[in-house]
Computed example of a mutant assay.
Amino acid sequence: MGIFDKLFGSKERGCGEKVEKNSCSYNGECNSSTDGGIEVRILGSGCKNCQTLEKNTLEAINELKLKAEVKHITDFAEIATYGIMSTPGLWINGKIVSYGKVLSKDEVKVILEKI
């Protein structure tokens, strides 16, 4: 798939989507189904800010005892398909809920409680 397809192709995400090497659910199980849980994507290069957002998100999920599949998307062409140009970004169940800043664990918890 070329960069044009990645940038402007279908935004549908399903079982056939590309999974990054470091994408697993919070409990360490890798799969493509959330089984009724929530889907969470951390969008960013893997820098310290992105890692901090991922850590805070995982802690919030664990504290709220939610079932979730968390993926960290590091490919910039794929990140662009989400419509953000500033990272880190947080995508939950099909919506960008934050981008361009590192949310604290408590800020993530507030967002997750509204879902």
Rank of each mutant, 00 (worst) to 15 (best):
S98K: 01
I92D: 00
G94S: 09
L103S: 05
E69M: 13
I92C: 02
E63W: 03
A68G: 08
D75K: 07
W91R: 07
V70P: 04
P88F: 00
E78T: 15
I84T: 08
A60N: 07
W91D: 11
M85S: 12
K71M: 14
L53K: 03
E78N: 08
W91V: 05
K67S: 15
G83W: 04
A60R: 09
K101P: 01
V70L: 15
L53A: 08
K71Q: 14
M85H: 11
K101T: 14
W91N: 12
N62D: 15
C50I: 01
L103F: 03
L90K: 05
S86C: 11
C50Q: 02
Y99V: 00
L103Y: 01
N62R: 15
V70Q: 05
A77E: 13
E59W: 06
T52M: 15
G94Q: 06
A68P: 09
V102P: 00
P88R: 01
T74I: 14
N62W: 06
I79C: 05
L64K: 13
K101W: 04
T57D: 10
I92A: 03
V102I: 08
K101I: 10
S98P: 00
S98Q: 05
Y82E: 06
A68W: 10
E78F: 01
A77V: 09
A80H: 09
Y99R: 10
K71I: 03
G89L: 01
I73F: 04
M85V: 10
E78M: 10
Y82K: 00
E69G: 12
E63G: 07
G89I: 05
L53I: 00
I73E: 13
I61F: 06
L58W: 11
T81A: 12
